[in-house]
């Protein structure tokens, strides 16, 4: 399960993780549950239907990555079909708004269907008795909702005290709380996402759900170490102007091209310095969470398929290193 605050790039990280985990000869399923078609956009594919389809081959000619956009309504109809053989009655229910009712409003049913479908994929075996997917990665709802989303099975189990939904919920919950599941939280080195990550971990732990790693995304390179920044922030304008001039960027005299660059460059450095300081503080908070972390770099050129593969290689490197 990959969760994270909005804007931290959890869809990208989920996809990179799926690519990283798809070893040679293996298969990974990447699951989307929020109907945003974020995976299709990321991979530059057509909108994903409600079926598992191969979307990529992992880096280095490794395993295959399949993708699935789970639609709660379709999942419910499937479910009814499977257990009750309700072909036309299912359509009648739909017409009456019952399906809409069930998936939109009925407490937690939607979430049970979404997690239930993912759990089904986790447990599915082929004829030879081997698991069809080595890993199932879910691009899960954001941190603020993740515990309720995963734990809703408990809620449903409490509300629907008997019957198939009750049983289904229990079975799903068992998979989710097992050591086979890990909830990874994506964050940036910024105050709000880090705070939300800390809160999310507390909630997940409180609900007995297995917390995996913290994945720090979009980590910026630090071009200047602290000493350098201090020096730059000091009164060295003239020297810097001359250095710029030496580097071929115009005159260092007052009003010269190089001289006019000094102030904006120093301002950018000061901004960078305060960001580095903030990042250091946030890193401290994350260290206090006492969880293993991955770090992914900020891609200056923006996110595209090449960038996605670069992140996947980075993830592989980091788990190899451990």
């Amino acid at each position: 399960m990959v969760s994270g605050k909005g804007g931290t790039g959890k869809t990208t990280v989920a996809a990179a993780l799926a690519l990283a985990l798809a070893r040679e000869g293996g298969r990974t399923l990447l699951v989307e549950v929020e109907g945003r078609q974020g995976l299709a956009q990321l991979f530059g594919a057509e909108a994903l239907p409600y079926e598992e389809r191969k979307i990529a081959v992992a880096p280095g000619g490794g395993g295959e990555v399949f993708a699935l956009a789970i639609d709660a309504e379709r999942a419910l109809l499937d479910y009814l079909q499977m257990f009750y053989k309700l072909g036309s009655a299912g359509r009648a229910l739909k017409k009456l708004g019952a399906i809409d009712f069930a998936t939109t409003i009925a407490p937690g049913l939607r979430d049970v269907l979404l997690t239930g479908k993912a759990c089904e994929a986790v447990r599915r075996k082929d004829r030879a008795g081997r698991y069809v997917y080595d890993h199932v990665i879910m691009d899960a709802p954001p941190t603020g909702r993740i515990t309720r989303f995963l734990n809703v099975n408990d809620e449903v189990a409490g509300l629907a005290r008997f019957g198939p939904i009750h049983n289904q919920a229990q079975a799903v919950m068992k998979v989710l709380k097992s050591p086979e599941t890990a909830v990874h939280l994506v964050t940036l080195l910024e105050e709000m996402p880090v705070q939300e990550t800390a809160d999310g971990i507390e909630e997940l732990r409180g609900a007995g759900l297995p917390v995996g790693r913290v994945i720090v995304n979009m980590v910026r390179p630090h071009h200047l170490d602290e000493d350098t920044l201090r020096t730059a922030a000091g009164d060295h304008r003239a020297e810097v102007a001359k250095a710029l001039s030496r580097a071929g960027l115009g005159g260092a005299r007052r009003g010269g091209l190089a001289e006019r660059l000094v102030d904006p460059l120093l301002a950018q450095a000061a901004e960078h310095a305060s960001r580095v300081e903030l990042e250091r503080a946030q890193r401290g908070v994350l260290t206090g969470l006492d969880l293993p972390t991955y770090e992914l770099p900020l891609l200056g050129a923006g996110m595209d398929l090449a960038g996605l593969y670069a992140l996947a290689r980075e993830l592989r490197k980091q788990s190899v290193a451990e």
Partner: peptide, 22 residues
């Protein structure tokens, strides 16, 4: 000092290049 200033300045320039890319 010149070496230090050069290094600082190079850092400032790299930082700027990154900013321009963003």
């Amino acid at each position: 000092d010149t070496a230090v200033v050069d290094r600082i300045t190079a850092g400032l320039l790299r930082l700027h290049a990154e900013r321009m890319q963003v």
